[in-house]
Simulated assay, not measured.
Amino acid sequence: MLSRACKSPPQRRVFVVGVGMTKFVKPGVENSRDYPDLAKEAGQKALADAQIPYSAVEQACVGYVYGMADCALALGFEKMYKRGLETKFSDRTNPVDKHFEVLVNKYGISAHPIVPQLFGSAGKEHMEKYGTKTEHFAKIGWKNHKHSVNNPYSQFQDEYSLDEVMASRSIFEFLTVLQCCPTSDGAAAAILASEEFVQKYGLQSKAVEILAQEMVTDLPSTFDEESVIKV
């Protein structure tokens, strides 16, 4: 009786049936919009893509939420400061303080922007350990810019050669401006549905099943004072 009572409930199949996204723009521009407008556009586009009414959505979530529903709208948005990831709140602990401590212990901190130092130092350590070349990291930026050409929602849609990426303005160590992600304002949404909901609304032809998912938080090894890569 005990083992029968402790059995996990059967897993339900989950499908993505609609997605929506705003165009991502540079923070602080004249036509930038606030959270409600960004969220509204992304959500309405997701509903239009799914071709279902808003009344069919049982829950709408922003962040990590656990709940049972046949149809839910997952929404994310960001509105950043014009100068990027500066510290704006001095009355609370910065959530990445521990990560910066690892950087200080390994390489120290210079006058360069702090976030590029974090990623650049991880790359530097990777080079020292595995012989990685600067071209390997530059190819990531080259690939991403190449993809942006076909995405109308990208903040930038210019394609660059590998040489142009490597020769662009230096930000920190080997990192150049065309290898760094920009600050952006924008939003995106997805509608998730159960198998029963997909069948009810005839969405089989557009439904994309989620076969697996995983979520993890920082591990103790993340704060290993000997390695920036794990940060």
Rank of each mutant, 00 (worst) to 15 (best):
E30K: 12
Q199Y: 13
H145V: 02
T22D: 01
P116C: 05
D37S: 11
G131F: 08
I52Q: 03
L73E: 04
R13A: 09
D218Y: 13
E128I: 06
K230D: 05
L47E: 02
Q44N: 12
S8V: 13
A39Y: 00
Y54D: 15
T176H: 00
K146P: 02
L211P: 02
S121F: 03
V165C: 06
E58F: 06
N150C: 10
A138V: 04
P36L: 05
H112G: 09
K40W: 03
A5F: 14
E58G: 07
H126G: 05
A69R: 01
N144I: 07
I171W: 00
L38E: 00
Y160W: 07
D91L: 11
Y81I: 11
Q59P: 07
D70K: 04
G84R: 01
D224E: 12
G63F: 07
A5H: 15
S32V: 08
L75R: 01
S194A: 09
V177T: 14
E195S: 08
R169K: 13
A193N: 03
K146L: 15
V231A: 06
A60Y: 01
D158P: 08
S170E: 14
M21K: 02
A39H: 01
V177C: 13
V96L: 14
P152D: 08
N144H: 09
D218T: 14
L219Y: 15
V62H: 04
A138G: 08
S90T: 15
V16E: 03
E135S: 15
K139M: 10
K129D: 13
S110K: 08
P53G: 07
G28Q: 07
S148T: 11
A74N: 09
L38A: 01
S8G: 11
N94Q: 13
Y66S: 13
P113H: 10
L38R: 00
F156C: 06
I140V: 11
L175T: 03
L211D: 11
A187W: 00
F156H: 05
E78G: 07
E196D: 15
E135F: 09
V198P: 00
F197C: 07
T87N: 15
L178P: 00
Y64A: 11
W142T: 01
N151K: 11
E225F: 14
E58Q: 10
M21R: 04
G120N: 04
V198Y: 02
D37P: 03
G28I: 04
V16C: 09
E128W: 08
F197S: 02
C180W: 02
S161V: 07
F77Q: 00
P36E: 13
D218S: 15
E164A: 10
I52H: 00
Q11D: 12
E195D: 09
V96H: 05
Y35M: 15
D37C: 12
L85M: 14
L47K: 03
P53Q: 09
K79G: 02
M1A: 12
E30W: 08
T222H: 06
S3F: 11
L73V: 05
N31L: 06
F223C: 03
V149C: 14
Q44R: 09
G123C: 06
H136F: 15
R92E: 12
R4N: 13
A39G: 07
G28R: 02
P10L: 13
E125L: 04
A190T: 05
D163K: 14
A190L: 10
A187N: 01
A193F: 02
M68H: 13
A5T: 10
